[in-house]
Amino acid sequence: MTEAQDLHVELQILPEWSRIDPVRQAVGLCVEAVFGNEDLRDALGMVCAELLENAIKYGKPAPHKVRLVLSNSEQPQHHEVTLSVINAVDEASHHVELLQQRIGWIQRFDSPAEAYMAALTLVYERAEAQGGEGGLGLVRIAYEGGCRLDCDCPEQGVMAVHARYTLPRTEVSP
């Protein structure tokens, strides 16, 4: 062991809604165990849940599985914690493009907070007209979760979304 805080968790789950909350809790507890930081526990637990919700809503159903990787890379001044959710998608699906567009939309703002306020306002303005979907998940990950987002296709019919959190060493309990 050379690193003071080492984190590597890989899970593979069926894309069923009931699996999300146990994974959210497990990810949060792993983060708290390694970094001793309750705020980060809640934040990355939420990020995990939002990413899994998207994967289950828009990915291929069972028997295809959803893979989650939680890892940490130690830098001189900070830790970079990465949470990746990888799932199968229909090859005709436009979900990857839509995700990339949404991430691009978030990045156009000066800060994630501004992007989040803009997204909330859009939800309010169309509140009467629409049902349950508000499209807040990704922008919430950026604002409340404090994560940078990107997504890619590691192979045909597979997509991966990565949320990266920079944790200053001063916020880590020894």
């Binding site: 909350d21 959210r24 939420m46 849940a49 939002e50 919700e53 909330l120 919430r140």
Partner: peptide, 8 residues
């Protein structure tokens, strides 16, 4: 905890 759909 609540999800973003609850915020909506």
């Amino acid at each position: 905890h609540f999800n973003s759909s609850t915020i909506t």
